[in-house]
Amino acid sequence: MLSIRNVRVRYGPIEALHDISLEVNEGEVVTLIGSNGAGKTTTLGAVSGLLPLAGGQIHFDGHDITSLAPHKRVPLGLIQVPEGRRIFGTMTVAENLDLGAYARTDRANLRNELDEIYALFPRLAERRNQAAGTMSGGEQQMLAVGRALMSRPKLLLLDEPSLGLAPLLVKEIFAVVKRIRAKGVTVLLVEQNAHKALEVADRAYVLETGHISMTGDAKTLANDPRIKAAYLGA
């Protein structure tokens, strides 16, 4: 469904991604793990179009999206939940969700989508008229995910969903990832919490300073001694 070939990304003169290639198949949960500064968020930025490429190609669902503007990638079914939640703080929860459906043309089915999301996140339903910026971090993260789901994506790019959340909420967020997958949405998950990420994912890529150093089945990687030593703290 998503294939990234030989992608390079530069921040000014510094190359952050050197020649990255990866595949995400339909229905999978794929995770990108790696330490700080390895290029995980940069990879997602390249896929969603927020960062320009210095080389390589990206194909999504049969389209070449290498040089497509970000707002034109969303209608194709590709959406990113940016790192650090980034909800629209002065707007209400309902307005935030509405903006998630911004790129959709089939406005008629919106009602069902909204009900589904409220069913997925009951807290959002309770707070639908509250200003989004006044909610807790966990609720904001739920809102960010809900907002992305409103665009009815085929592929969801999740960037550090557990960032800054309490352990209980981290558990809840990963349960949500499983439920999203059950709905048939493909997920590309970037996570620092490698342990949890490998638990929910089918396959994983390990990023190290802008290279993919390892790849494989998530269960196998979780038992790999090198991964255990470097990322799982065992």
Partner: peptide, 16 residues
């Protein structure tokens, strides 16, 4: 207002 609140999130939501 979405652009005001968070430009990156607005862009990621498909707003031009």
């Amino acid at each position: 207002r979405a652009v005001r609140d968070d430009e990156i999130a607005a862009e990621a939501s498909g707003i031009n």
